[in-house]
């Protein structure tokens, strides 16, 4: 299969070109070219430490971009902050647990709309999300720290949806979850996508991730090694042998 091929710029909602990024003095990823079209699910796979999360963080404003450009929705957004990202419709669900454990489920959702600067607006959004996540509705006054791992992941997803993102960055949404919850979370991701949210996913479970993805990227040692549709990557022998353990 072909080497990294730059995506067609015309329909890309998110586009990274030649991005070199890391933290402080440390460079983690080099010359990353990546594009996600509007309405797509794109999945980034690769071994541990290959820089998958750093790519996500450089998009969101959590990592330092040293070279290259990132554009979103036709605008250059290379060095922006998480606040800017949220306001322009990008939200990010971290790999590590990111609920506020001593706050109620409801307060956690309000925090999802912190950038609105308006609690009423955040509360209205939270009510809409309770319809989509009845599980959270039942637990709204409960402290988030008391939720099960799966419920917590749902809360993190719902909190990321408060800003009505155009693009959602999901970092290992299945990590640490029981199999039944993994299915639920992936169903939810598909649903979200069908409703029009573009998704960039990092997934340790590469087969699972690529199977729902329109577009896949294989990252190793901080560089994109392969790019293609999800199916192409799943069927590619070299990718399978090197990165999917197949």
């Amino acid at each position: 299969m072909a080497e990294t091929e730059p995506p067609e710029a015309t329909d890309a909602l998110l586009e990274l070109s030649d991005v070199t990024a890391g933290y402080g003095n440390t460079t983690v990823v080099h010359d990353v070219d990546l594009g996600v079209g509007e309405g797509e699910i794109a999945c980034l796979v690769g071994p541990n430490g290959s820089g998958k999360s750093t790519v996500m963080k450089s998009i969101y404003g959590f990592a330092d971009v040293f070279e290259g450009t990132i554009s979103f929705n036709g605008e250059e957004v290379t060095h922006r902050t998480p606040q800017d990202s949220l306001r322009s419709g990008v939200s990010y669900v971290l790999q590590s647990s990111s609920v506020f454990p001593d706050m109620s489920v409801h307060e956690n959702l309000l925090m999802g709309g912190y950038v609105f600067g308006d609690d009423d607006r955040a509360a209205r959004r939270a009510e809409e999300l309770y319809d989509e996540f009845p599980r959270l509705d039942e637990r709204r006054e409960q402290a988030a720290g008391m939720l099960s791992g799966g419920e917590r992941r749902l809360l993190e997803l719902a909190r990321g949806l408060v800003v009505e993102p155009k693009l959602m960055l999901l970092d290992e949404p299945s990590i640490g979850l029981e199999p039944t919850y993994i299915e639920q979370v992936f169903d939810r991701i598909r649903q979200l996508n069908e409703l029009g949210t573009t998704i960039l996913l990092v997934e340790q479970n590469a087969e699972k991730g690529l199977s729902i993805a329109d577009r896949g990227y294989v990252l190793a040692s901080g560089e994109i090694k392969f790019a293609g549709t999800g199916t192409e990557l799943l069927e590619d022998e070299e990718v399978g042998r090197l990165y999917l353990g197949g």
Partner: peptide, 18 residues
């Protein structure tokens, strides 16, 4: 609430734009 958020989970606080 932002102050409590920073106390409980600074990384998540940055995540939600604090």
């Amino acid at each position: 609430r932002a102050i409590r958020a920073v106390a409980q989970n600074p990384e998540a606080a940055r995540l939600v734009g604090i």
